[in-house]
Amino acid sequence: MKQRVIAVVLTCLLVLLMVSGCTGTTTGFAPAGSSENKKLVVGTNAEFPPFEYIDDNGKPDGFDMALIKAIGEKMGKEVDIQNMEFDSLVSSIGTKIDLAIAGMTVTEERQNTVDFSDPYYTAVQYVILPADSEIATYEDLSGKAIGVQLGTTGDFDASDIEEADSSTKVSRYNKGVDAVNDLLNGKVDCVIIDKNPAETFVSKHAEELVAVDGSQFGFEEESYAIAMPKGDKELVDAVNKALQEIKSEGTFDKLVEEYIGN
């Protein structure tokens, strides 16, 4: 009996040691791109056309990718893009990646854990509906089955609706396209997602689906920005400076035209 007690205590100690060791390394670990390094490790979630998607060659491409490469060039760093789940992005900043660019909306909650660059794009959430849907107002959304991508602004909006009316069912997918698939199969009544991916998805199913501007539903306009480790003022300043230069040179507008249109 005594031996067993000792064994349990030792196991607990070992686990604790491992766990505390992990936290120690996360906080003390210097990100790969700190100033002495030539590489800028960028995290994204390539499931968000036209901002980021996997191109025909299997590489992440899109507006954000082109933008961050231009920024990297200005900073004199080689951009290394890591594709991961959207909801893993913020907790990876500062450890696995130097910064994240993924059509990420600036929110107060996120600002508690990361610092954002100047916003580079403003957008509003869109609602994708079946062409014959009767949903037309914010009130119509309550009690419905809503599809979203986990951890996105659409998820937060849908969660608000769910909180106000618990009969609302929110399905959270890893990818926007999965949500749209289930909308086509009739498993959800609508999908709340950012404007540009909404339009991209609807253009592929123009017969069955429509995308409605979320401002009609009272969703607020939001700004996309690049997320960086909290308190890394040097990096934030460098990125903002590069972004400013790209804008004043006209490269930014060219990228908007190339990838986003309108």
Binding site: T26, S88, S91, G151, N174, D178
Partner: peptide, 28 residues
């Protein structure tokens, strides 16, 4: 099962981590 939008235990942890931006506590 999170792949098909079900909220099981693992997905619940992911969902909370995507709100708090802290992966440590929910995962452990």
């Amino acid at each position: 099962v999170g792949y098909v939008s079900l909220t099981d235990l693992t997905r619940a942890a992911n969902q909370i981590a995507s709100r708090t931006y802290e992966a440590f506590m929910p995962l452990i």
